[in-house]
Design a protein around this nucleic acid. Structure first.
Lengths: 377, 377
DNA sequence: GCGGTTATGAAAGTGTCCTACCGAATTCAG
DNA sequence: CTGAATTCGGTAGGACACTTTCATAACCGC
């Protein structure tokens, strides 16, 4: 990564300072030259040179809109990071659905698209579907294909450091380097990541885990799986298997979902979990018992994870989110006797687009690293 | 830590390059100016200036010993990092014993001392004992007290980010900021850390975990506790509680030690575990059953930890090390059905001084950060 | 002792950053 | 509408660090 053993000459110094200026503008826009000089600690002429170079590289532009406030003295030119200098695409492809999300470099969402997928669709056609959907979506909403600097795809299953997927959800994708296949479609960066990990990134970006650095995310769905960030960075483990506590029968995570089975009345179009949540909201004793049973089976796994990494926060997301308000206190109560300090537990606030949002975040991280990591310290 | 938002001027550049040169010399000594120029990518005059400044600061000296090899041309001056520019002290204070270890900045051990401690000794007298032992040890073996740049003390119990200890081994130390108390004795850096974490650092430095970045360390003793490194860095958790899986009765770690009870014949001075190991070596069926029972109780906790962080390596250390050769295959066998990829499992190779060695390593890390982290990128 | 080889030392050259100064543009007071 | 005050923009001069280049010094092998 950063080669700390190399010295720097003067052109490296200039590149370094240019990057510092770009980073300052990325953090906050617009800014005046004088303001940049203060925040970066550089002199105004130096900042001016850096801004000029960045303008040549189309990464920075002059802000034209009126500032509104009236200050004495000659008005300062204001420069801003050009969020339209590039775009990233986040994709969530699960068993039943696919979500696409386009964002600019400022992290603003520009377009989104959702498709149902036949759960029985095999690996090959599924990949074709994904590729065509991406192409069509980009062609329709992005200025050009070249403007998309990175794509990130969230898949249900483990992703090793070599990019190879291991999944039981789409068996034909196991052992496949999905990223490499997708990279054939364009010259941009392509990333593939486990869906829980992306949901976690999303929560840390815009959801319930803002500012928290050590976070555990528990995804409840057709299976229960977990992801974690340590020190603000995703921890994948040796082969992407970190958080896969479902493997250990003793902890009961693999069978937890069964507790949520619900044969009560369902409104039209209402999912099973939603019906259960509605019944629980109405204090239906059978529904409350079902939620309690779910908490019983969920807690040992969560406790093991909490004790293993001692996180600041645990985020619950996925299919069981609707019953969350009933579930959280129960888990907390069961966690109390077995943990020295019960971590804060929160419910996801991002809903169905969580994974796609996290994919956008990861793609943005990659692009920012490419753009802003010239520091080379 | 590193303030990436600040720009750099030329004096910062010079400081940066000086640090790069120091780091190169720290990595390998001695080196010639020309060699340093190659490894750092700087020109020879620049390296020369940096070496001159470092010599003034007494961090670098000219190597005087004969090189032995005869090369044509004018012989080059060779410079080396002055390992005697400072010293660090590592301490392991457990319930029954205290180990002190003095090392220079090159990591060479200069002196060691071991004392038995009455397990009933309270917190106050125990702290006095520690302070006096440190002072006497330093006075005897270090050139001066001021030459000791950092001390690190390993204690049995959790250490929060604020330095406050939580321990059941020495109850009076719970809630106490031990580091602050010890810091009163001198102007040097004082660190306090959980003993398992230090044992893990030691294994990563000189033991079984060299080069591995994600490692779990399981300390077996009067209690079983665990530590972990993620990406090569210790992970402590929100309040130093990471790895404390003993809290979860379901996993059985808290009662594991009982399985090692052994009432068989003991040689004079032989510990219970050593006698058990000897009996197991002799294929005594009762001894083998005891070890198997220990493996049974140890495995669920190890499995939970392994699934949670998916480490490259698990290191077993502590009191049960003597039966390790019998234990390891049993744990591996029990781990196989519940983990997708069984991590490598290794036995500690550092013995009783492991924690003290880790304390030295942590103190060295601190000093090196102070010395070498001027990069300020 | 002499040539070959390599390191050392000092100079000139290039590039970057900073400070300082002056002109330019706008606001505000009268 | 005019002038003072204020702040920004542009440019020149100086300081500093790194690199390149060349001459000199020290040592080896013949």
């Amino acid at each position: 990564m950063r080669n700390a053993a190399r010295g720097h000459d003067l052109v490296a110094l200039r590149r370094l300072n240019t990057t510092v200026v770009l980073r300052a503008l990325h953090r906050r826009s617009p800014q005046t030259l004088a303001g940049l000089a203060v925040t970066t600690g550089l002199s105004r002429p130096t900042v001016e040179a850096a801004v000029e170079e960045l303008t040549d590289r189309s990464l920075v532009g002059e802000a034209t809109e009126e500032t509104g406030e009236r200050t004495p003295g000659r008005p300062a030119r204001r420069f801003r990071f050009r969020t339209e200098a590039g775009y990233v695409l986040g994709v969530d492809i699960g068993l039943h659905k696919m979500v696409l999300l386009l964002a600019d470099l400022g992290g603003a969402f520009l377009a989104t698209h959702r498709t149902e997928i036949d759960p029985g669709l095999g690996g090959g056609p599924r990949l074709d579907l994904l590729r065509h959907a991406i192409d069509a979506f980009v062609d329709e909403h992005a200025p050009s294909r070249a403007a998309v600097l990175a794509r990130c795809v969230g898949v249900p299953g483990m992703v090793g450091g070599d990019g190879v997927v291991t999944t039981v959800v789409v068996p034909e994708w196991s052992g496949v380097d999905l990223g490499r296949l997708l990279a054939e479609d364009g010259p941009d960066r392509v990333l593939v990541e486990n869906d829980v990990n992306l949901a976690l990134l999303a929560e840390r970006w815009q959801g319930a885990a803002t500012l928290a650095r050590d976070v555990v995310c528990v995804l409840t769905g057709h299976r229960v799986s977990c992801g974690l960030t340590i020190g603000g960075r995703l921890h994948r483990g040796r082969r992407g298997g970190a958080g896969e506590l479902g493997m250990l029968p003793l902890l009961g995570l693999s069978t937890a979902q069964r507790a949520l089975a619900w044969d009560g009345e369902r409104l039209s179009g209402e999912s099973e979990v939603a019906a259960l949540a509605r019944a629980a909201d109405g204090a239906d004793p059978r529904a409350l018992a079902a939620v309690a049973g779910f908490a019983d089976r969920l807690t040992p796994g969560i406790a093991a994870l909490a004790l293993a990494v001692d996180p600041e926060l645990i985020v619950l997301t996925g299919g069981a989110t609707p019953v969350g308000p009933h579930l959280l206190p129960l888990i907390e109560e069961r966690l109390r006797p077995v943990t020295l300090h019960v971590p804060r537990i929160a419910l996801s606030s991002l809903g169905e687009r969580g994974v796609a949002i996290g994919a956008v975040r990861m793609a943005l991280d990659q692009v920012e690293e490419d753009l802003l990591a010239d520091t080379a310290s």
